[in-house]
């Protein structure tokens, strides 16, 4: 059993809106083991991106704790947090808006090195930037190019190089491949897995794409409306899904194979309900085919059904 690098305890992030309080992240508990990948999967609006940003303190949390190597990030002052940022980085979804269009590749990758004064001379910076570009597979001739001159895959590589520049232990990947074509997507996924092996990185991989998350994760947490409904090792989750939402999600993926057609006819009906001032009870109950009275009375808690397999559902008993 490897050691836990990052842990969230009762993490909450609410937003005040004119219509009420939006529960973007509602009482999330999770932990990521060192050198492993935790996949967070959910549909748009389930709070998965907010979760990532709250963990990194890019958004102020409402309550809860995030422990990185046992230290609570939310109790750190600006200076300590500044140091901490070297340890934890983020890669964004959109390779078009995540890079400053006015900066060259070199400027973008070297900026973190300057801010944290990692390299002393400009010669050292040059060497480090070239090294990073080589690691992510960017030819050196691109160093003075601007992002708009490059395609999505290469731009995503710049984003990865920027995240790696500080030699972090932990990287949050927020849909890093969703905006890319499939063949490019596969290249980037392979690159990220290679990097994980060689640099012993820990990933929190946020995505809506189940096949991608299965491919890259060691463990997967399924989110629905701000809460984690199920968490299990990757293979286990796909083989023995427990929560009705997870089951529906798995059934809904169109599989590129001949015998797939007409197999997913019992699809989920309805749509995600509003995250603003949600009623107590399971968030999924209004769409759930198996909902009964208890489901709408109180929030189910995340319980360990079998070793390492957690589910928040009254179907599997609850205290």
């Amino acid at each position: 059993m490897s050691m836990i690098l990052l842990e969230c305890k009762n993490l909450k992030k609410y937003f005040d809106t004119p219509y009420g309080t939006l529960h973007a992240v509602d009482n999330v508990n999770l932990s990521v083991k060192k050198g492993k990948t935790l996949g967070i999967v959910g549909e748009s609006g389930c709070g998965k991106s907010t979760l990532g940003r709250t963990i990194l303190r890019l958004l102020p949390p409402t309550s809860g704790e995030v422990l990185f190597e046992g230290k609570n990030l939310f109790e750190m002052n600006e200076k300590q947090m500044h140091e901490m940022r070297k340890q934890m980085q983020i890669i964004f979804q959109d390779p078009y808006s995540s890079l400053n269009p006015r900066k060259t590749v070199y400027q973008t990758i070297s900026e973190p090195l300057r801010v944290h004064k990692i390299c002393r001379t400009s010669n050292e910076i040059d060497l480090r930037v070239r090294e990073l570009m080589e690691i992510v597979g960017l030819a050196e001739r691109f160093e003075n190019s601007y992002p708009h001159e490059m395609d999505g895959g290469r731009r995503q590589r710049i984003g990865i190089a920027r995240a790696l520049s500080l030699d972090p232990q932990f990287i949050i990947c927020d849909e890093p491949v969703s905006a890319l074509d499939v063949s490019i997507q596969a290249q980037i996924l392979n690159l990220m897995m290679d990097l994980q092996e060689t640099m012993n990185l820990t990933y929190l991989f946020i995505t809506h794409d189940l096949s991608v998350v299965k491919h890259i994760s060691t463990e997967i947490a399924v989110m629905y409306l701000g809460q984690i409904v199920e968490k299990a090792p990757s293979d286990e989750l796909f083989e023995k899904p427990l929560h009705p939402y997870t089951k529906a999600l798995l059934k809904a993926i169109p599989i590129p194979a001949l015998d797939y057609r007409d197999k997913h006819l019992d699809i989920l009906t309805g749509e995600v309900s509003s995250p603003i001032d949600p009623r107590p009870g399971c968030r999924f109950a209004p769409r759930c085919p198996n909902a009964f009275k208890a489901c709408t009375e109180a929030d189910p808690s995340l319980n360990e059904k079998s070793p390492q397999h957690f589910v928040a559902c009254y179907l599997y008993g609850n205290i």
Partner: peptide
Amino acid sequence: LDVTIQAQ
């Protein structure tokens, strides 16, 4: 669209 909505 999201997967469950895509399926619909």
